[in-house]
Write a protein that binds this DNA or RNA. Structure first.
Lengths: 190, 190
DNA sequence: TGTACATCAGTGAACGCGCGTTCACTGATGTAC
DNA sequence: TGTACATCAGTGAACGCGCGTTCACTGATGTAC
């Protein structure tokens, strides 16, 4: 049953990607290794051929999920801050249970996780901040970064709350208002 | 061993309060019924004399935890929006693992929870929004509420991210910047 | 007010279950000659 | 290039453990007369 190095590497990537989706859909604690291995089309026994522990795959899944978000943001970024914010705080992102931003889907669990995971999530947070900081070219780099830190934090909070709330109108209001307020930042100085 | 009605009611309150602290410290899934009953000074077997299910105590713990936050905000509110934001986004609140705001401590888990829990969390969210909306007396009520929705969402995101991030400077920057940006809202129109 | 009995808050053992992790095994891949 | 053997990706059963929930039991509280 041994697979070639290429196939094994591809399998590993598939597991990380499936893990990112499953964690974002159901949460870290609520997702078992069997669940994510099944989502990758494998049985759970093989997990430890690729990873040291569940924590390791959580960390890698975070990085993987954030890479997707960052790529999208970089693409939208050519059209300005508004485009990034609109995509991040869209109904579509809110409804996409898996495949969305891990910071929003897993935020409170990540904050309680241990260093390995938090370090990985931090790194992704920083990279997302840096992408958004580029949307404030008129500010000096430090001020732009500071603005971007606020934008990312506020977007994460808004997306999380819009998913938590049971009233659909309130959910939409959270997204709308956050979009409006964050769009304003572009024009004004730091 | 039967306790008087008064004692039983007091015990119930103690369990809910202990639950709020334990959930906020370790997360919902990571806190067992034994943990929270032990935190209330009881053994786990008695749990179902007071609650239908774990979900029920989660819902009540959310409401309980948010009541504390709302009371604090109402108190600070007499000194204006800045005072509320300063307290919510303080290092002190960030470091207080238990006893803080459940929306920040449990946000992503709440977003994935079922209706009973999400309805309870929503209710608390709305009440907190209403308290903060009073800080925009110059706006018409609807606009004030809309502003407040943004303030709460942004504060929740900022507190969560400031707890997640491993770099202490970045953690402080998240709080500082969010405070600064949210303080600005007071003056300007909706 | 006193007595007899039902109620029920709290205990601690037990239930089935799924968790993260380990392991013996399989057989194709990689390697040494 | 062909052959012999070591490697190891993936399988599926098994491990101990703690979960949420249930239950028989205890004995003080509440209630009916």
């Amino acid at each position: 049953m041994r697979k070639s190095k290429l196939e094994a590497a591809e399998t590993r990537r598939r597991i990380v990607s499936a893990a990112a989706q499953e964690f974002c859909r159901n949460g870290i604690h609520a997702t078992g290794l069997s669940d994510l291995m099944a989502a990758a089309g494998l049985t759970h026994g093989g997990f430890y051929k690729h990873f040291r522990s569940k924590d390791q795959v959580v960390a890698e899944a975070c990085v993987n999920g954030l890479e997707t978000v960052i790529e999208v943001a970089e693409g939208e970024g050519k059209s300005g801050l508004e485009a990034i914010v609109e995509t991040y705080l869209s109904m579509d992102h809110r409804n996409r249970l898996s495949g969305g931003c891990p910071l929003a889907a897993l935020g409170s669990e990540l904050a309680q996780a241990d260093d390995e995971i938090r370090a990985a999530a931090s790194q992704g947070f920083i990279r997302l901040v840096d992408v958004i900081a580029k949307q404030f070219p008129q500010s000096d780099p430090e001020a732009a970064r500071a603005q971007a830190v606020f934008v990312v934090s506020a977007m994460v909070g808004a997306l999380t709350m819009s998913r938590m709330v049971t009233d659909p109108d309130l959910s939409a209001l959270i997204l709308d208002q956050s979009r409006k307020q964050l769009d304003r930042l572009q024009g004004q100085g730091a």
